[in-house]
Design a protein around this nucleic acid. Structure first.
Lengths: 229, 229
DNA sequence: ACCTGAACACCGTTCAAGT
DNA sequence: ACCTGAACACCGTTCAAGT
């Protein structure tokens, strides 16, 4: 009657780095960074740990490869007809990738902070930077402008993902927002007067619009750098 | 002849949450997040794990408390005479805190992304947001402006800390920069034309100046939001 | 070349027992 | 109330052995 194990059936296909990475992404999506374990990975792929270590150096490299796979797909957006539109498209692509794979937020910021395993962040920098160059920003400001944009994109997208993650369904979301607001309202009004003032407006805005408004703000700053005339 | 243990001598002072957090910060500074272990913490404080768990719920809370202690000190800057100067002071305070305690970068971004243990990020938001409010930005833009600034500050400071960390001494720094540049130069010129173009200028700039230039860029964007006239 | 699976060193956490 | 320290469940990683 009872089959031996629910998850791992046939094991017909051979193991490969790609299959391992795919399984790793599924586990990360399902339960976050702590949900990716060599035991459960091993079980789902119906092998032993040694088999995985044959294809992958260690856990860090595995998570790095997972990050790279997801981000590479996200960066492959259709070319738009202006640098500004292109930046918005890339930003939204990353926003949605992080929304669907919240573990990316921590991972990307760790990679920006020098984590050695795999580096997609140069690719993100390059991708955004090209569009900055396409606007006529003075060359000396390229790095400043690009890094302001990239940090905003990754940070804001990560923060959004955290909310979306807790939120879940629509009714969950309403409840979550109500709770969050209640918690903010409980803050000492004198010590947190700004947060309290801003809490209401946060609730009404659409996440995506809010996010893009930030992009526009940074782009307005970039625009101000352009040579006058 | 031989004393029992090199590190932990007298053990005269009683254990306390504060002493535990202080020791935790030292370990984090010395060897990063993975360097903080209940075994070595236990050894340095000359106790058992149970004693620590009496004062602290778990490792997450401990790291959260360490973060809070350091950030609280960093946010206590002398009041400046303009919102803009105040923002720059707060930003530089955080920049330096993260430079001296690189583990903060990952920790803060994790807290922004909804990590439950301790939350200093509302304090940072409040601190920056108050100055945004003091500039005459339309109220509907407060959140956007503040989050653009905060994400830039935390992201850029974290990235700087990563470099500073590897760099170490001055000669190390020169070697590190040379290596980094060599690695960038090795990138495919077609695929990474922007990164290559920007590599040179990155090397010349002072880290702090570079960082503040980004703050100014975002502030220029904020300025563009102000009511015309 | 690719995979197996037992074994190793280490981790955070618990808890009965002491003072 | 505060601390001790053995024990537990679990983790990433290794490696001799198989095919």
């Amino acid at each position: 009657m009872a089959t031996r194990s629910g998850r791992s059936q046939r094991r017909t296909e051979a193991l490969s780095r790609e299959r391992i990475v795919t399984a790793a992404i599924e586990l990360l999506d399902a339960a976050g960074e702590s949900g990716l374990t060599f035991r459960v990975l091993t079980e789902r792929l119906a092998t032993g740990p040694g088999a995985i270590y044959w294809h992958v150096a260690n856990k860090g490299e595995l998570v790095g490869a997972a990050t790279e796979a997801v981000i590479t797909a996200a960066l492959a957006t259709a070319p738009a007809d202006s640098p500004r539109a292109e930046i918005r498209a890339v930003a939204l692509g990353l926003f949605e990738a992080i929304e669907q794979h919240p573990w990316l937020a921590t991972q990307l910021s760790a990679q920006l902070s020098g984590n050695p395993w795999g580096a997609v962040t140069p690719r993100i920098f390059e991708c955004v930077g090209r569009q900055i160059r396409a606007l006529d920003v003075p060359e000396q400001d390229w790095f400043t402008a690009t890094s302001a944009l990239v940090h905003y994109i990754l940070g804001a997208a990560g923060q959004n993902a955290a909310n979306a993650q807790v939120a879940g369904s629509e009714s969950d979301r309403a409840e979550f927002l109500a709770n969050a607001q209640a918690e903010w309202d409980r803050l000492d009004p004198g010590e947190y007067s700004f947060l309290r003032a801003v809490a209401g407006q946060m609730r009404e805005h659409d996440d995506r619009e809010q996010f893009l408004a930030g992009i526009d703000l940074v782009l307005a700053g970039v625009h101000a750098l352009r040579p006058k005339g």
